[in-house]
Simulated assay, not measured.
Amino acid sequence: MSEGVEWAVHSCLNLAWAEPGEAVTATRLAAFYELPAAYLNRQLQALARAGIVSSTSGPRGGFRLARDPADISLLDIVTAIEGGQEAFRCQEIMRHGPGGRDNVDYRKHCLVSQAMRRADLAWRRELAAQTIADIKLAVEGTRPGTPKMVRNRLAKPVS
């Protein structure tokens, strides 16, 4: 998984704390963690294509969440950044091993492939069960000053 996923999740979380109706530029979001703005902007554009954030151009433009934080799962973000393909891709190497046959779909019959697919499904279910709202609530419970700190930091001019 690329670092873009981590950047996208943190950006969505920070956007959840932004002032209501306020758009935040990619430059300002990138400055928050000293990230390269151009690369973060690519992640934000992927989130926009997926309908997770919306973007507005112009002098007061930037990004804001397009959906309620409770309606944005970690799986939504991972899929927007990485795509929806499975983590494990069976290459059907058993076909070329002893006793391998051309008429067998080893993706379905191979026990290694089945185990990897179960693990991938469990991972996806866990990501789908966690939302930005869940993480936001957990952070606010352990660090109550975070929302105000984020809003203040996002409001400061980028140097």
Rank of each mutant, 00 (worst) to 15 (best):
L44Y: 06
S11Q: 07
M1C: 12
A119T: 12
T56V: 08
L13A: 04
V5F: 08
A26L: 03
N14C: 13
L65V: 07
P36H: 13
D120T: 11
V78Y: 02
E86W: 07
M1L: 12
R118A: 14
E126K: 15
A8Y: 06
K136F: 09
A115H: 13
I81K: 04
G100S: 05
P20D: 10
W17K: 02
A37R: 03
W123M: 13
G62C: 02
P144A: 04
N152W: 11
Q85F: 01
I72S: 00
P20F: 08
S55L: 03
T146S: 01
A30Y: 03
L47M: 03
A119W: 10
W7E: 03
E140G: 05
A23K: 08
A122W: 00
L74Q: 05
K148I: 13
L29C: 01
N103Q: 14
N152T: 12
G21W: 00
Q85V: 04
G145D: 13
A128N: 13
E140R: 01
Q43M: 06
G62W: 04
N103R: 14
A70W: 09
S73N: 01
M116R: 15
A70E: 05
N152C: 10
M1W: 09
L15A: 04
D68H: 15
A115D: 10
L40K: 00
S55H: 10
R107K: 11
E92M: 13
P69V: 09
R89H: 12
P147G: 09
V5G: 00
C90T: 04
D102Y: 14
R28Q: 04
A128E: 13
G51Y: 03
R64H: 10
V139I: 14
D68M: 10
K156I: 08
G145I: 09
E34K: 15
P147M: 02
A87K: 11
D76M: 05
H10K: 07
Q85W: 03
G141C: 04
W7N: 02
P69Q: 05
P20H: 11
A66G: 08
E3S: 08
Q43K: 06
D76A: 03
S113F: 06
T131H: 03
M1G: 14
R118I: 12
D134P: 03
L15N: 05
P69I: 08
L111A: 09
L13G: 07
L35H: 08
P98D: 13
R95E: 11
Y39V: 14
P157Y: 04
A87T: 14
L127I: 13
E140H: 02
A133G: 08
I93M: 14
G21M: 05
D76H: 02
A37N: 04
R124N: 08
V24M: 07
E34A: 15
W17M: 10
G141D: 09
L154M: 04
A48G: 10
A16C: 00
R151P: 11
L75G: 07
N41T: 08
R107Y: 01
